[in-house]
């Protein structure tokens, strides 16, 4: 599944399920870019470009997440079953 992970209320719950899912893909969105992603480093991780850039997080996520825009997010949500944690 594709786990959309937002802020600290909901995002960490999504990451827990992503850890259990061998086919998990994770999208970090809004404050989700601050989440601790150590436990899901073996999964495909994406982060939304605008959210990363405005928070100055690009360096911190380098090599850990693929930075994508909304056009790519649209393709991902239609290609995968979505779990909402935003």
């Amino acid at each position: 599944m594709l786990y959309l992970c937002g802020d600290k209320t909901l995002g960490p719950v999504g990451l827990q399920y992503a850890q259990m899912d061998p086919d998990a893909k994770v999208v970090l969105i809004k404050d989700g870019v601050y989440l601790d992603i150590e436990g899901v480093q073996d999964k495909k991780i994406y982060a939304i470009d605008e959210d990363v850039d405005r928070r100055g997080m690009a360096d911190r996520l380098e090599g850990k997440a693929d930075i994508i825009g909304y056009a790519e997010l649209v393709d991902l949500v239609f290609e995968n079953k979505v779990a909402n944690f935003v």
Partner: peptide, 16 residues
């Protein structure tokens, strides 16, 4: 939690 994980797989959609 494992069963809850299965619920996410089994359901078509989810709302948080």
């Amino acid at each position: 939690k494992e069963k809850a994980f299965e619920l996410f797989q089994e359901n078509d959609f989810n709302m948080d």
